[in-house]
Design a protein around this nucleic acid. Structure first.
Length: 863
DNA sequence: GAGTTTGAAACT
DNA sequence: CAGTTTCAAACTC
């Protein structure tokens, strides 16, 4: 940069000698002659390298296009790049230290990629292997590549580099020092360089945008480590190539080089999406490359080569990213991920992870997922943005690629998506999510560990995990095509559209912005590459109506969602993400995949219009707020009651025969307690019921807090007698009453069933009862054990139901006092319920009376 | 595998 | 905007 072109012209011969400058013996008089070189020599050994950089920069200057193409790249940056190149070229030329190149490329972005092209030819040119030649020839990048990546100057660069290499070959030991210096510079400068490079690159093209996200995503995902992971890997390769291992690396790299070069160029040629006549092939190749990288690294034998190959392939990948844009970005993500993973776990990722096919499918998943996870969000968002932004052609290309990938290699998609999505971190989902995962995805592979899965989309699960998960989730269900579609399957989820021609949002593929593939079982599918025009038109049409139609449905809610203290306290709604539009569930209570929120594994939000939300990932905020408000009221009332009771020394043992209590109308007296306890709170009925139950749960808790002795009575939430509330109210109601634990615990459903009361309760509502059963089944043994003290309370007969103090009480008390929780072993005696005015108009009176009687009768049993 | 349920999307 | 219809996934048997 600093030195103008004239220096370059003169330097072309001298460049080769520049490296030797590091060594005391400068064989080329030319170098000595130049005052600049002299100055360089006077400088510290590191600076000579920089000088070489400068010289390389000259080389770069030879290629003005670099400057023009990436005008924003700082001179410094370019210098580093240039310096790297020559070094690399030295390595490659003499013995091809591809690792360095790979490292550099990895560490650095497009600029490096651009340079890669020249390098590859260089390596090829120097490599004696016939294979290399063949590969290079076959793989020779199409002219289009030049358009995208190659700077016009690159071609010029080659000869210079060649000269450099030749000279360097003679140099010998000097290379090591230069390499060291470079390595150091790379390490130190690498990140900065990346940043510098990334910015301009991103701005330069959408493709760059895509790539960055991936990179950033990786960084985010891996955090500092991951961020470093790439560096580590890169550095690792560098280290290998570095002076200590130079010889070894060089040899191996040299051996491997041809292959790598071939691969690269293949990638390179392949990478150009537009250019690529057959995207499928490209993808396959790309996959192969990735696979080879991963596998090679896995194999100790291949390791040395791997480094080089990986680097080269990585380069190739990056190129693709550049060229392909979206697809490339995805691929880059994959590559990054793989690298990271590899760095961490050499063995970890299955081949599938690397495969590009995930590109198409996981776009949405990524998009959706990314927002969720802070680290990866950038990628996802950008991807989404990019997708949205580029409706027309870019999107189309993506689709093509995706579609191709899907059709060609469905599993790959998944794996890839899987990885990416797993990056999403829903820490907030906490126990619920954890439970969910545990239950649904029993098989969590290492990758899972690395990437805790919160798959928002169906498409995200890795193939292996998918299989496992499906079996686990639906061991017996034979879902045909649907099965493939299922989220669990995760794999290339295919649609099963019959009438929509896959041109409506009904179609998962279309809705995800993907073309249908072989995995789809759709009829008269119009969502295929062949019908791109139609697809695009349809998309535009849909977008005209709803610009966000193809936007990710799951958005990071941290900023969007007002953080309710309630939520946080109750852990009812993980704040990590929310469904953009929210669900509208009426009957599923957001507990099934009918609910998009649940399906996406995110909590319901205020945007949801669901009834009786029981979303395990987070209840609707409204409910929580309602609950909170009502709970306060009830608390006050309860306190009053408690005081009153104490004043009157009322016994509070309660035994209830549900059969008796049960009103004709499903008033499921879940617990007599409830009815008794709700004093006049009945006002809230019907629709509020859902809120009521939540409230009641809180009330119960609050009651306990205020009066431990009053226990069950006060816990009782209001029973909603209205039919509307029946199904809605009861279950939550019961749940809440039964165990405040759920809320305390963070809302995992499992806790709900823990209370001894639950099993005995008969619910008229099937869904509730089912849910109840499920919950109960899920109840942890510990809780069951904990409940044992009250087991006696359980009534075997459906008609009789004895109410034991809600677990919540136990938990609260136990936790508050000793923290032992349920295990405290503290016995709770049900006290007869004081006669309160009937909570519910329906059967309250009965309940009360019966409750008293029963309680008095069964008081003995209760203990 | 067929049928039902469910809720989103599309339509009016 | 609300109500209805259409649709395909999810679910059940």
């Amino acid at each position: 940069m600093d030195s103008p072109e004239p220096s370059q012209i003169n330097n072309t011969p001298s460049l080769s000698t520049l490296n030797p400058t590091n060594t005391p013996s400068d064989e080329s008089p030319q170098v000595q002659e130049s005052p600049f070189l002299r100055f360089v020599n006077t400088l510290s050994p590191i600076q000579p390298v920089k000088a070489s950089h400068a010289t390389h920069g000259f080389l770069g200057l030879n290629s003005p296009p670099l400057v023009f193409k990436s005008p924003r790249i700082s001179d410094h940056h370019r210098e580093t790049q240039c310096s790297e190149r020559p070094d690399e070229t030295h390595l490659s030329g003499g013995e091809m230290c591809q690792d360095d190149t790979g490292d550099n490329c990895l560490g650095e972005t497009h600029g490096d990629l651009k340079k890669l092209n020249p390098q590859q030819p260089l390596s090829e040119g120097f490599t004696t292997d016939a294979q290399n030649d063949v590969n290079t020839q076959s793989c020779s990048p199409p002219p289009s590549v030049d358009e995208y990546l190659a700077d016009p100057g690159d071609d010029q660069m080659y000869p210079v580099n060649l000269e450099m290499e030749q000279s360097t070959d003679a140099v010998g030991s000097s290379l090591t020092e230069s390499e060291k210096v470079i390595l150091e510079s790379d390490r130190s400068d690498g990140p900065a360089n990346r940043a510098e490079e990334l910015l301009p690159l991103l701005e330069e093209s959408n493709t760059v945008h895509h790539e960055r996200p991936a990179y950033s995503e990786n960084l985010a995902i891996m955090e500092g480590e991951k961020d470093g992971a790439e560096w580590v890997s890169q550095e690792h390769t560098n280290l290998e190539s570095s002076p200590g291992a130079d010889i070894f690396d060089k040899q191996q790299s040299h051996d491997s080089l041809p292959q790598c070069a071939g691969n690269d160029q293949r990638h390179h040629s392949d990478c150009t999406p537009q250019l690529m006549p057959d995207p499928i092939q490209d993808i396959k190749e790309f996959e192969n490359c990735n696979e080879t990288v991963s596998t090679s690294q896995v194999n100790s034998e291949n390791i040395p080569q791997d480094g080089s190959e990986a680097s080269l392939k990585h380069h190739g990948i990056r190129r693709r990213c550049l060229q392909f844009g979206e697809a490339a970005s995805l691929g880059s993500n994959k590559s990054h991920v793989k690298l990271n993973v590899i760095s961490r776990n050499m063995n970890m990722l299955p081949v599938t992870a690397s495969k590009p096919p995930g590109i198409g499918l996981h776009l949405n998943s990524i998009i959706n997922a990314v927002p969720l996870s802070c680290p990866s969000s950038s990628t996802g968002v950008r991807l989404s943005d990019g997708l949205q932004g580029m409706h027309s052609k870019s999107s189309i290309t993506l689709h093509k690629v995706e579609n191709v990938t899907r059709s060609s290699i469905p599993t790959d998609m998944d794996s890839q998506s899987f990885i990416d999505t797993r990056n999403e971190s829903h820490e907030t989902d906490a126990s619920v999510a954890a439970d969910y995962f545990i239950s649904e995805s029993p098989i969590m592979t290492e990758s899972i560990d690395l990437y805790p899965e919160n798959t928002c989309d169906k498409r995200r699960v890795s193939p292996t995990s998918i299989e496992n998960t499906e079996e686990f989730n639906h061991p017996n269900t034979s879902k045909k095509k649907k099965k493939t579609n299922t989220d669990d399957a995760g794999g290339p989820k295919g649609c099963n559209c019959k009438k929509s021609k896959c041109l409506k949002l009904y179609c998962d593929c279309f809705g995800a912005g993907l073309f249908c593939g072989d995995g789809c079982a759709c009829d008269s599918c119009g969502n295929r590459v062949e019908f791109q025009e139609t697809v695009v038109e349809t998309k535009h049409h849909i977008e005209s109506r709803n610009p966000d139609a193809f936007a990710p449905k799951i958005v990071k809610c941290a900023a969007d969602v007002p953080q309710n203290n309630m939520e946080d306290v109750n852990m009812t709604t993980p704040a990590s993400a929310r469904h953009k539009r929210g669900c509208n569930c009426k009957r599923s209570m957001c507990t099934k995949k009918y609910c998009e929120c649940f399906q996406s594994k995110v909590g319901c939000s205020s945007g949801c219009r669901c009834d009786g939300c029981k979303n395990a990932f987070g209840k609707r905020e409204d409910f929580v707020a309602m609950e909170h408000a009502l709970s306060k009221e009830r608390e006050s009332n309860i306190v009053e009651e408690a005081l009153d009771d104490k004043l009157h020394n009322r016994p509070k043992m309660v035994t209830i025969r549900t059969g008796l209590l049960r009103p004709a109308n499903h008033l499921s007296p879940v617990t007599p307690l409830l009815q008794c306890s709700d004093q006049g709170k009945q006002g809230a009925k019907s629709r509020l019921a859902s809120a009521d139950w939540t409230k009641s749960s809180k009330n119960s808790r609050s009651n306990l807090a205020h009066t431990e002795t009053n226990d069950s009575q006060k816990n009782a939430p209001t029973c909603a007698s209205s039919k509307e509330s029946e199904w809605i109210d009861l279950p939550p109601y019961q749940l809440s009453n039964r165990c405040g634990i759920r809320q305390l615990s963070g809302g995992s459903l499992r806790w709900r069933g823990s209370s001894p009361i639950t099993p005995s309760i008969n619910l008229d509502d099937e869904p509730d009862s089912k849910l109840f059963d499920i919950l109960e089944d899920e109840t942890p043994d510990i809780l069951k054990e904990a409940s044992t003290p009250t087991k006696s309370v359980k009534a075997n007969s459906p008609l009789q139901k004895r109410v034991s103090p809600p677990q919540s009480h136990l938990l609260r008390i136990g936790s508050s006092s000793s923290g032992g929780g349920l295990k405290s072993g503290r016995k709770f005696i049900l006290q007869s319920v004081p006669s309160f005015p009937p909570l519910t108009p329906c059967a309250d009176s009965k309940v009360l009376s019966t409750g008293k009687e029963d309680s008095s009768n069964s008081a003995e049993k209760m203990t």
